[in-house]
């Protein structure tokens, strides 16, 4: 198989469950409650945003799902057999190996499973094509712009065709123009492949544009305060970004976020 396979995405409400977080808490150092009693059901095909102020535990939730740490209480249940190859990750930094070419960086998930470069060369080329970097196959990361590095990082996350992609504020460090372009491309990629995405962000606009589910979180202690759905159909493009529907959704989400921040509103203005 050289093409990335396409999974169909059923409409919201008819999607099979992918994983369930039940009553998850994470306490650091015995004193700092990063996450308190989080319940979340993730379905296959969801584009779910975790939205909230800093310190609300959204990155902690992501790290728990990635298996990088264990919850203090509660459990995460995967539907069906789960192994580590099911997950792709994109961090806020591109997190590329500077000594390896673009193609060799994208090879990493395969390499760690013991697959030779030659055996997956076509899949790597395909993934690079999907993010528009086919010409930069043999370039080194230092030769790329910030946005291009992020595309390599995305290609690496998608290349194994994982069930779930975790994205931890991936575009926060990029300029507005690059960020919007990457938002468009990410949606196109997700609809082409049909994977599930959890997207951590603190931008209301980004979360509304990208996701069909938004989980609003609050800090001190980190917790889920509200779940919202964005029922606008995909594909979403520039027309959606300027529509009344989009404006209405951003207003609802902004309201929810303001209530979530509550007494601490001043900290984040």
């Amino acid at each position: 198989m050289t093409e990335l396979s396409k999974r169909p995405i059923p409409p919201l409400g008819q999607r099979p469950r992918l994983l369930e977080m039940s009553d998850i808490s994470k306490v650091f150092n015995g004193t700092v409650t990063a996450l308190n009693g989080m319940n979340l059901t993730l379905n296959e095909g969801d584009f779910l945003s975790l939205l909230g102020p800093s310190g609300c535990g959204k990155s902690t939730a992501l790290r728990l799902i990635a298996g990088l740490m264990r919850p203090t209480t509660g459990r995460i249940t995967w539907n069906g057999k789960h192994d580590r190859g099911d997950i792709g990750v994109v961090f806020q930094e591109p997190t590329l190996m500077p000594w390896a070419t673009v193609a060799k960086n994208v090879w990493l998930p395969f390499r760690l499973r013991g697959q030779s470069f030659a055996s997956v060369q076509e899949r790597i080329a395909n993934a690079l094509k999907l993010v528009g970097l086919e010409k930069f196959h043999d370039a080194y990361p230092r030769e790329l712009s910030g946005g291009m590095k992020m595309r390599v990082s995305i290609a690496r996350a998608f290349v194994t065709n994982p069930r779930l992609i975790l994205m931890d504020e991936p575009f926060a460090a990029l300029d507005e123009i690059t960020r919007q372009k990457l938002n468009d491309d990410l949606l196109a990629l997700q609809s082409k492949i049909g994977c599930t995405v959890i997207f951590v962000t603190h931008s209301v606009f980004e979360s509304v544009f990208l996701s069909d589910r938004i989980v609003v979180m609050a800090a001190r202690p980190g917790r889920v305060v509200q779940e919202l759905t964005v029922d606008a159909p995909y594909p979403r493009d520039i027309a959606f970004r300027t529509s009344a529907d989009y404006a209405a959704h951003t207003q609802v989400v902004s309201e929810a976020l303001r209530r979530a921040i509550g007494d601490h509103a001043d900290d984040h203005l």
Partner: peptide
Amino acid sequence: DSNLRDLYDIYGA
């Protein structure tokens, strides 16, 4: 790089 270490862990290196 600590993110790269995390990435390797996630992929079960």
